[in-house]
Computed example of a mutant assay.
Amino acid sequence: MSKPVALITGGASGIGLALTQHLLGQGWKVVIADINDRAGIELAKELGPDALFHHANVSIYKDQTAMFRKAFNWGGNRLDFFAANAGIDDRQDMHMRGDTTDENGDPKQLDLTTMDVNLTAVIQGCWIYKHYARRNAEPGGKIVITSSVGGLYASPVNPQYCTSKYALVGLTRCIGPPFLENENIIVNAICPALIMTALCPPEIRDMFPKEQLTPMSTALSAYDRFLDDGRLTGKVAELSIEKVIMREQVEFATENQKWQMVDALKIWRQTY
């Protein structure tokens, strides 16, 4: 029987690397998708024949389609798991002071690369994965999206990052149940508190109290839970130090709001 196959974006460092090593230890084959060629190539050599590095900038759609095609073909026409993990912090400070105008006196365009990588690429990734999950011998698969504790609480320092991570929580809850019902694909998300990875600025690493850090083992525990239980979908796991906390959406403020978002679905489906 062939080994299960995973595609992990941002797989050459941080949570992605830890997940890669974890899955390899459990008998998976893993495609490491990353923009860091040097690290990725060295890792693939180090990790052995069940690991493959593929260069991909997830903000470029052609890169995404190529990485999924490569993973599916290399895996023997199967792709069991997509970890939508690649992410970056804000590329431009929205709170910056001073002159931000161009030669015409208009505001310069804000750099939205963070939104392209953290949100748009994940939406596209889920869309592309559905295509390949349908082609598995047993149609279906699993997706885990890396959101953040910044997707549950306000984070004024990195507003684009925070906004994108909030949106990923919403995406998970919106597509999780119908993806399972219609495609046999489960979709869940993790929301880690600070895990010390390369995304964290060096000066923060020195200042942050060690007792306030969430260990990588907590993230891996959440992944295992979602991979082992094929019934969980549309779920959001908040990670805080050693705790994995399943977070439900806010309660409906009124019965009318509940009707609008639950009972009225049959009306909307007649249009869409």
Rank of each mutant, 00 (worst) to 15 (best):
residue 206 D to W: 02
residue 102 D to P: 00
residue 88 I to E: 04
residue 63 D to I: 07
residue 184 N to K: 15
residue 21 Q to M: 12
residue 161 Y to K: 14
residue 173 R to V: 02
residue 243 K to A: 15
residue 216 M to Y: 10
residue 219 A to T: 14
residue 110 L to R: 12
residue 65 T to F: 03
residue 210 K to Q: 15
residue 115 M to F: 01
residue 92 Q to C: 06
residue 119 L to P: 00
residue 5 V to Q: 01
residue 233 T to I: 08
residue 250 V to S: 14
residue 165 K to V: 10
residue 251 E to W: 04
residue 201 P to Q: 10
residue 217 S to T: 15
residue 72 F to A: 07
residue 88 I to T: 11
residue 215 P to K: 14
residue 17 L to W: 12
residue 181 E to P: 00
residue 269 R to Q: 15
residue 142 K to W: 02
residue 230 G to R: 11
residue 122 V to S: 03
residue 237 A to S: 13
residue 119 L to H: 04
residue 251 E to F: 04
residue 240 S to G: 00
residue 128 I to L: 14
residue 34 D to K: 07
residue 58 V to P: 00
residue 180 L to C: 02
residue 144 V to N: 05
residue 84 A to Q: 03
residue 146 T to P: 00
residue 230 G to C: 03
residue 11 G to N: 12
residue 15 I to W: 10
residue 257 Q to N: 14
residue 160 Q to C: 07
residue 252 F to E: 06
residue 19 L to G: 01
residue 149 V to P: 00
residue 75 G to D: 03
residue 199 L to R: 09
residue 171 L to I: 11
residue 218 T to M: 09
residue 126 C to M: 14
residue 224 D to Q: 12
residue 112 L to Q: 08
residue 269 R to W: 02
residue 172 T to W: 06
residue 225 R to D: 03
residue 112 L to I: 14
residue 16 G to P: 04
residue 60 I to M: 05
residue 5 V to S: 01
residue 134 R to H: 08
residue 266 K to T: 09
residue 10 G to H: 09
residue 140 G to A: 10
residue 78 R to L: 04
residue 233 T to Q: 05
residue 191 C to F: 04
residue 213 L to C: 13
residue 176 G to A: 09
residue 89 D to Q: 11
residue 99 D to T: 00
residue 219 A to R: 12
residue 97 R to A: 11
residue 77 N to V: 01
residue 179 F to G: 03
residue 162 C to T: 08
residue 26 Q to I: 04
residue 92 Q to L: 05
residue 2 S to C: 01
residue 217 S to M: 11
residue 246 M to C: 04
residue 117 V to Y: 00
residue 28 W to I: 05
residue 265 L to A: 12
residue 204 I to H: 06
residue 95 H to M: 09
residue 7 L to H: 07
residue 63 D to H: 10
residue 13 S to M: 13
residue 68 F to A: 12
residue 267 I to N: 05
residue 116 D to F: 01
residue 207 M to S: 15
residue 107 P to H: 10
residue 161 Y to L: 14
residue 226 F to W: 10
residue 82 F to C: 08
residue 43 L to M: 01
residue 211 E to T: 09
residue 89 D to R: 09
residue 61 Y to S: 11
residue 162 C to A: 15
residue 118 N to K: 08
residue 7 L to V: 12
residue 151 G to W: 07
residue 198 A to S: 13
residue 255 E to G: 05
residue 128 I to D: 06
residue 64 Q to F: 00
residue 217 S to H: 07
residue 229 D to I: 10
residue 62 K to H: 10
residue 162 C to L: 03
residue 100 T to Y: 00
residue 210 K to V: 13
residue 112 L to P: 00
residue 194 L to T: 15
residue 56 A to N: 02
residue 8 I to E: 02
residue 91 R to S: 08
residue 184 N to Q: 13
residue 105 G to A: 08
residue 42 E to G: 00
residue 163 T to D: 00
residue 138 E to P: 00
residue 226 F to E: 07
residue 133 A to H: 07
residue 27 G to H: 02
residue 247 R to Y: 08
residue 269 R to H: 03
residue 109 Q to T: 12
residue 61 Y to H: 12
residue 23 L to E: 07
residue 191 C to V: 07
residue 11 G to R: 07
residue 26 Q to S: 06
residue 193 A to Q: 11
residue 94 M to R: 07
